[in-house]
Design a protein around this nucleic acid. Structure first.
Length: 565
DNA sequence: AGTTTCGGCGCC
DNA sequence: AAAGGGCGCCGAAACT
């Protein structure tokens, strides 16, 4: 009852299970069990459960109070392996993987369903094609071989294991939910927006601000309609291209102030107002649906509820249970530190080895103490800044940290040339739209001219210039290797933290790229604070190998999320 | 009438 | 001051 076991749920609530050998193939009989959770509970020695989809199995285990240490999510792994093989668009269901293996017709993936407040199911409906345990094992064994064919098999194995751990964490957080006080939320809304009027229209404060905007223009203007606002400014003799905050803010006009205030509050009202509260918070918990690997870089997304975009003012509503605390832990300068780890730039690693503010350290070495410039330069290198002071700053950064900048420059060049780039563990960028056209154009092959475009305008792909698309792909690839490798690390962090919490009453309740929240009894708070930093250090070693780089956490123990930092 | 895209802004 | 990466969400506008 040790080692890896495969599991396939049955229609009737039971399951089939079987032990796997070192080659990933069946190493014992297929056992039919009447109770899925019971089948797992009865085999505590299993080190890793291999199944089609965590989102399919894990909710049933959690409902029965069964916890597994590790799993291997075949469909998550299929997605990553296909990506590494440069086959991003192909169906990634287990059934599709099996069909590819057997040379049969490949079924398309089920369509993702749309977000539904309060729903608990997985993003994909259950696969329409049942995959038997024997078939699943066949796919799994083949995946093991495909790991060996990657650039760095050990890293790829770590990546699929980490993504699987992320799936476990996500389904546990989906079930647990984030402690949320509807009373506090309503108080915040009332404070900001005023009373609601019957009929669902704008609350009082928004109506007042709309009136102020109209009064300033001398006519009725709807501040939520960009076209109306642009027209109103034009009539006042001010030409604006859009109504974006940065374009409006500097204008000299009495409508500006109430307009900006309106936009700020309007957003809270529509995105996190009373109807959001009604739809997404039940029994004192906000339950978004986390989707690990939902973005191309490996960052998570949430399906519905906007959990990763909770406005700061609304965080007042995130309140620990009585006698419990929220351990809010924020990784300090995660992405620059990850760049240090993946580039192995000696000077940059030295800077990133310290717990002290990284931007300050960089500025001491390269910007005569100007922290702001150092931060702009570092972020510009990671994001691909193309103009302004960024370029000058980048040159200074390059002089002091040549390997770090070269690392992202190389990625940018690969992206511009339409080549794939990978994160440290092997998550692979999708081929960007237009890449093949640009490559052909650079090779001198004429492209079809868009018949809709005006004849007199120069085409974007005129020889001698990297196209707009090409440069955009460069920026994407540049960012991909850093953001994606940071996401690699974050998965390992979560896995380690989950392990630490398993010995406590503490629960992981929130994760947002470089920030985690653990909900725990007040007595456990100190343990959890230490566990976060230990998990960070472990994740760093596991992900990047021996490196002096550290990612320190700024941690606050609070009763309310808004009181952190 | 239903579906897709756009504009704007929230988060990292 | 303006600009660069990744997302989700909402209502309005633009489509089919």
């Amino acid at each position: 009852m040790t080692g890896r076991w495969a599991l396939v749920p049955a229609e009737d609530g039971g399951a089939e299970v079987a032990a796997l050998g070192p080659d990933g193939l069946l190493a014992g009989p297929v056992v039919r069990e009447g109770d899925l959770a019971g089948a797992v509970r009865a085999r505590p020695g299993v080190t890793r459960w291999v199944w089609r989809s965590t989102a399919d199995v894990q909710p049933r285990l959690l409902a029965a109070g069964v916890r597994v240490d590790r799993c291997y999510d075949v469909e998550a792994a299929e997605t990553l392996l296909l990506g590494h093989e440069g086959r991003h668009g192909e169906p990634r269901s287990a059934a599709a993987a099996l069909a590819r293996l057997r040379g049969g017709p490949v079924p398309p993936d089920p369509r993702p369903r749309s977000a539904e407040p309060g729903s608990q199911s997985s993003l994909f409906e259950p696969s329409p094609v049942h995959v038997s345990l024997a078939d699943l094992v066949e796919v799994y064994a083949d995946q093991q071989r495909r790991h060996d064919a990657t650039a760095y098999p050990e890293r790829m194995r770590l990546l699929t294991a980490a993504e699987s751990a992320g799936m476990l964490v996500a389904s546990e957080m989906n079930r647990c939910g984030l402690p949320w006080s509807p009373d506090v939320h309503r108080a915040v809304l009332h404070d900001l927006l005023g009373e609601r009027y019957a009929g669902g229209g704008e609350p009082r404060r928004l109506a007042e601000l709309a009136d102020e905007v109209s009064a300033a223009f001398g006519r009725r203007v709807r501040p939520d309609l960009p076209a109306d606002v642009v027209k109103a400014f034009a009539q006042a003799g001010i030409r604006v291209r859009s109504t974006r905050r940065w374009e409006i803010a500097s204008l000299d006009h009495p409508a500006v102030e109430p307009l900006l205030e309106y936009k700020k509050l309007y957003r809270i009202w529509v995105a996190h107002g009373w109807s959001w509260l009604q739809g997404w918070v039940r029994d004192g918990r906000f339950r978004p649906e986390y989707l690990p690997g939902g973005t191309v870089t490996g960052r998570w997304v949430t399906n519905g509820g906007g959990a990763l975009q909770i406005p700061k003012v609304i965080r007042r509503a995130v309140v620990a249970d009585p006698g419990w605390r929220l351990v809010v832990a924020d990784a300090a300068q995660m992405e620059p530190r990850v760049l240090a780890a993946i580039s192995r730039d000696p000077a940059f690693m030295e800077v990133a080895a310290r717990g002290a503010d990284l931007y300050q350290s960089v500025s001491d070495r390269a910007f005569s103490g100007d922290r702001g410039q150092a931060k702009l330069a570092v972020l510009g290198a990671i994001y691909g800044q193309t103009s302004g002071d960024g370029l000058k700053n980048l040159a200074a950064l390059r002089r002091r940290f040549p390997r770090a900048v070269a690392y992202v420059d190389d990625a940018a060049r690969a992206g511009e040339e339409g080549r794939l780039v990978r994160t440290w563990l092997g998550r692979t960028s999708p081929p960007a739209a237009g890449a093949s056209e640009d490559a052909a154009e650079e090779a001198g092959i004429p492209q079809e001219v868009d018949p809709e475009s005006p004849a007199g305008e120069p085409q974007q792909w005129m020889p001698g210039y990297a196209s707009h698309n090409s440069r955009a792909r460069g920026r994407f690839a540049r960012n991909f290797v850093v953001q994606g490798s940071a996401a690699d690390w974050a998965l390992l962090l979560l896995a380690a933290l989950r392990r630490a919490c398993a010995d406590l009453a503490a629960e992981l309740v929130f994760f947002q790229h470089d920030e985690v929240i653990v909900h725990c009894p007040v007595e456990e708070a100190d343990l959890v604070v230490a566990a976060v930093q230990e998990a960070s250090d472990l994740a760093m070693r596991l992900t990047f190998g021996e490196t002096p780089v550290r990612i320190p956490f700024a941690t606050a123990v609070v009763e309310c999320y808004a009181d952190a930092k």
